[in-house]
């Protein structure tokens, strides 16, 4: 039976969910978790996967001594093992008014992408934390684990939500301050906020592995502007008068490319990844092709 949201059309059908279970979110850094999961941890512990030796010191668990090495070398070594632990997957969805735009709607595309990525985390027995960023605050649901919580996840993502203002930096800072656990952090946003760099800086500073899914509508990538138009910002109501000729569109595209390069470079310097996602990109293509090639899922 497909897992569905309560208020909206189903995010995915069962077949798609089964396909999703073949994937898992990649973790480039080894992280220390709180309980055993299906991921390797930087903490050496009690598992079957050998990691290294170190000299014995008083107080070490005698069961970890490598007696074979002692027999050969007459020195005491303690065997170190990689301990498999869980990670926390943070999925942040920008719910500002600028996201409630485009054909297909960017916020709807963000909800579906967040649902799919969240389901990946749940299916991998990772802790999944999902939050909407908007109005200077982060509205997060309680972290959850396991596929049985998928419905709860989908319901949360399906809630009607568009914030009046973005306040992306403040919302990101608020989330970073109270987040618990580290692991992959996926920010799905159009980043159309003056404080987008501050937001990225705060999120990257959490030692989580930040991936930015930069979601833009098709007409934000290739705008068609009438010769004499007054562009009205859905979020702020601010208007900009333009004369839509090819020269202007060329300059817009150049600015867009520069902006993407700036974000990509900023994120890359902090060990993160940047992916531009047109809102009309098919979700399956995003997950099984784009994100896979970018090693965000594997």
């Amino acid at each position: 039976m497909p897992v569905t949201a309560t208020h909206r059309a189903p995010f995915f059908d069962e077949a798609f969910l089964r396909r999703l279970e073949q994937l898992e979110l990649a973790s480039r850094r080894l992280t220390a978790g709180r309980m055993k999961g299906e991921r390797r941890s930087t903490r050496r512990g009690q598992s079957v996967e050998f990691a290294d030796y170190r000299n014995y010191s008083a107080g070490d668990d005698l069961r970890q001594l490598d007696w074979n090495a002692y027999a050969r070398l007459e020195k005491l070594f303690v065997k170190l093992f990689v301990e498999e632990e869980d990670v926390t997957v943070h999925i942040l969805v920008d719910a500002s008014r600028s996201m409630d735009y485009g054909e297909p709607n960017k916020l709807e595309a963000a909800r579906r992408a967040a649902a799919a990525l969240g389901y990946l985390g749940l299916a991998s027995m990772d802790r999944v934390s999902v939050a909407f960023l908007g109005d200077g605050t982060a509205t997060a649901m309680r972290p959850m684990r396991g596929k049985r919580r998928a419905l709860e996840l989908f319901n949360f993502l399906s809630e009607p939500r568009t914030e009046r203002l973005t306040g992306l930096a403040a919302a990101a800072r608020a989330y970073a301050a109270r987040m618990r656990g580290s692991g992959p952090m996926l920010l799905i946003s159009d980043l159309m906020d003056p404080g987008y760099l501050d937001a990225l800086r705060d999120l990257a500073g959490t030692r989580s592995q930040l991936s930015v899914l930069h979601l833009l509508a098709p007409d934000e990538l290739e705008p068609e502007v009438p010769p004499d138009a007054r562009l009205v910002d859905r979020e702020t109501g601010h208007a900009v008068e333009v004369s839509g000729d090819d020269d202007l569109v060329d300059r817009y595209r150049a600015r867009l490319v520069d902006w993407q390069a700036e974000i990509s470079s900023f994120v890359a310097r902090r060990g993160g990844a940047y992916v531009l996602v047109p809102s009309d990109l098919d979700l399956a293509d995003l997950l099984f092709d784009v994100l896979r090639r970018r090693r965000i899922v594997e």
Partner: peptide, 17 residues
């Protein structure tokens, strides 16, 4: 007199004009 055209954000446009 220009025609109003709603956009998601004028974030990029502002920098152009």
């Amino acid at each position: 007199r220009r025609r109003d055209l709603p956009v998601g954000s004028t974030f990029l446009w502002q920098q152009l004009v």
